[in-house]
């Protein structure tokens, strides 16, 4: 598995699409978390984020601001990364090429998951780094004091973000294995993340109690609850304290294990055609 992990890291690092996703994640986070709200504040305009006052953009809010995107739109990006890392092998027909070199399917899969875990850590850490730099700039421009979250809070936030992102990436990997490709898993994954989750939360849950209850067991609302528990603002799509932070972390970890196990089982049992 160690050799497979090294090979997967090289594949990810040399793949332009992986870097594009990283840049896109930074850009989206920067625009929606900092730049649009700041522009709104600076221009004094009213809008959907007009309640984001200046204090929300300062360094002491770094943890919540860095996690806010992960339940939905940054989650979608790491899901795409998970699909690409695994589904590409189906699309290019390279499973046979790499498996005939010797690694077992589970070793190759393990290597992929470890590489994905490193990639999601890099993405989440870079979200924190970009957020930190941006909030310092805003604080200095606005002559505000620079106060950082405690190291414990930072580490907890980084860990929570990593957990959420890895869970979404593992879902992407599972979808790629289940559907043996790239396009359909990305399409279905995005429909779930961007449309179905929202419709359930905004339309179905207020109407039906059982949907509201069932939501508490779904990955998206739990990711939103974990982000909310660590300071993400409730006006970010997908962020809402449906359950407590501890429970949410456990549910997400459970989904991560379930996605990883289901993907491994499918890959191990099915024929490589």
């Amino acid at each position: 598995m160690w050799r497979s992990w090294q090979a997967e890291m090289i594949k990810l690092a040399k793949r332009p699409a992986a870097w594009l996703l990283l840049v896109l994640a930074q850009l989206l986070a920067l625009l929606f978390t900092y730049l649009f709200p700041y522009a709104s504040y600076a221009g004094g305009t009213e809008g959907p984020n007009s309640d984001r006052t200046l204090p929300m953009l300062l360094p002491d809010q770094l943890v919540g601001n860095s996690l806010g995107g992960l339940p939905v739109f940054l989650g979608a990006i790491v899901l795409i990364l998970g699909v690409l890392a695994v589904g590409g092998e189906y699309g290019w027909g390279t499973w046979k090429t790499l498996l005939t070199q010797g690694p077992t399917r589970l070793a190759a899969y393990g290597g992929k998951l470890l590489a994905l875990a490193v990639a999601t850590l890099v993405i989440v850490a870079s979200l924190f780094a970009t957020g930190a730099a941006t909030s310092v700039v805003i604080a200095s421009v606005e002559s505000q004091p620079v106060a950082w979250p405690s190291l414990v809070d930072l580490a907890t936030g980084l860990g929570a973000g990593w957990l959420i992102a890895t869970m979404w990436a593992a879902l992407g990997a599972l979808l790629a294995i289940a559907l043996r490709g790239v396009a359909l898993p990305i399409g279905l994954g995005l429909v779930w993340l961007l449309a179905v989750q929202n419709l359930l939360a905004v339309i179905a849950a207020p109407l039906l109690d059982w949907v509201a209850e069932a939501q508490k067991g779904l990955p998206g609302p739990n990711a939103g609850s974990l982000a909310a528990a660590l300071g993400a603002t409730g006006d970010t799509p997908g962020v809402a304290a449906v359950v407590g932070g501890g429970q949410a972390a456990l549910v997400i970890a459970g989904y991560l294990v379930a996605f990883v196990a289901a993907g491994g089982l499918l890959l191990h049992r099915r024929d490589i055609l």
Partner: peptide, 21 residues
């Protein structure tokens, strides 16, 4: 044959050599 299109022929082989040990 099936290889990674974004890598060179040499890099593809280096990658596979890693899998093969």
């Amino acid at each position: 044959p099936a290889f990674y299109p974004y890598l060179s022929g040499r890099d593809n082989l280096r990658l596979l050599a890693r899998y093969a040990g």
